[in-house]
Nucleic acid binder design. Structure first.
Lengths: 248, 248
DNA sequence: TGCAGCCTACTGGTCCGACCAGTGCACTAG
DNA sequence: CTAGTGCACTGGTCGGACCAGTAGGCTGCA
């Protein structure tokens, strides 16, 4: 405990310093979404580096979802409004490289979505309640299965929004799309879609009623159960107990 | 429904195709962690592109946490074992750009960590239980506050691991470090650290007892309460009700 | 005067060739 | 057999060049 703790002097590469500066400008708000970066040739003057270096920095910024460049655009790279695209990308990579199982993903959804329902039951506005109602209505009227799924997603999205927690909203969105991507082909081949759709609507109506009544714990429990019923068939039998552990 | 749906022909850039191929090789497992990519000069031959293009592709892959290159390394870029570093980076960016509040982050932790406790109570092994016990023991023996926090983290990490869900484990880890980063300076200036530490140890012992007894719901509730007690002071008073909404 | 169409200046994407500091390995000298 | 040295090669950076594409100003026609 004690002496001067020296930081290791990491050899910081030129393009990294460019990335840091631009990133800082964006995150601090001095560069807002929609605004433009100077052109690459202008940037290489401002940073006193070569164009290769500028371009490598821009590639990194682009990979992080902060910036987009179009060929021929005379205004330079565009600062993007925040999107969870980068988060989505790294979580998708995660799912493949870390070998996340469908069970783990579904379990994660059960946790997040049920918490969203819990919070939504307490914090939702009347407008959001109407939106949920409308989504369920559109689910009932959906012409085909794709439209049905789209409205299903819309419902969950309103609930997540009503939770008042942007992180929950973003993560449910990201994980949901990964899960749907994993089982979309199996889902398309499901034997009796009408029955599944009818049951799903019923579940959503129950959740909606609980949210309307302000009963958070009930809404959370119903959400977990609905999700289990919907996805359990696609999860290997050996991993289902882990899911049921969330059902009490 | 309807006629042939043509995909828009996006002008795919050369470096993107390089990224895709390498990414595919890594995610499919034909390129394992620890293995090396060919040198940049070799890659430009294999892909029939210039070195600039190869380098831009490598920058993207590096930003995604899939590879790392060191100057002078005669073996080429190294394929990295999975780390949540990329996820961490994009979530940190998220926290700044999407203006996530401390309240939202803490709320997210309350949700995830309490679910981890819930699952751990049912799924933990005896070895993991012993690890938790050891961590609490080391918390009690911690010489200074830094060591204390480190053991606190270790405890939560074992619990997350015991949940059996890698995604929960990774996300708790990422969000925890973001939260700690946000309040570390305030925490260091806390008036009475000994009292806080004593209370924290007490909370952890209660959670541990519930996990040991296999009482998931209790462990989950205690985890939420402990986290609220620990962080509420740093959250603006106006946002605390949203946190208390999780306490029933 | 108003608008359609062309022109130009500039953009990003890609390529090439060059230099440098650093690394690991093989070879050499002791 | 080991310690030390050189070399071949690496990634990082630079500069210059060409191309296809875009936007906006300009021209010329109606």
């Amino acid at each position: 405990m004690g002496g001067p703790r020296f930081e290791p002097v990491r050899a910081v590469r030129a393009y990294e310093r460019v990335v840091e500066q631009v990133e800082e400008a964006i995150e601090s708000g001095s560069l807002s979404p929609g605004e433009r970066l100077p052109s690459e040739r202008e940037l290489m003057v401002q940073f006193s580096v070569s164009r290769s270096t500028v371009r490598e920095a821009l590639r990194v910024l682009q990979a992080r979802g902060l910036v987009r460049s179009r060929p021929g655009d005379p205004h330079g790279a565009e600062v993007l409004p925040f999107t969870p695209a980068a988060l989505h990308k790294s979580m998708t990579t995660l799912a493949r490289v870390a070998e996340l199982s469908l069970a783990e993903l579904v379990q994660f959804r059960m946790v997040l979505d049920s918490s969203a329902s819990l919070l939504a039951a307490r914090l939702r506005t009347d407008g959001q309640l109407a939106e949920m109602d409308a989504a369920v209505g559109r689910m009932r009227a959906a012409a085909d299965h794709d439209a049905f799924v789209a409205e299903d997603v819309a419902f969950h999205d309103v609930v997540a929004r009503a939770s008042g927690n942007k992180l929950i909203q973003i993560c449910t969105d990201v994980v949901r799309s990964i899960v749907l991507g994993l089982i979309s082909e199996k889902l398309a081949a499901a034997p009796d879609k009408r029955a599944l759709m009818r049951q799903t609507i019923e579940h959503h109506e129950e959740v909606l009623a609980a949210v309307r009544a302000g009963d958070g714990p009930l809404a959370a429990r119903l959400t977990r159960e609905a999700m289990y019923d919907y996805y359990a068939d696609y999860v290997p039998a050996g991993e289902r107990p882990a899911l049921r552990a969330l059902l009490e």
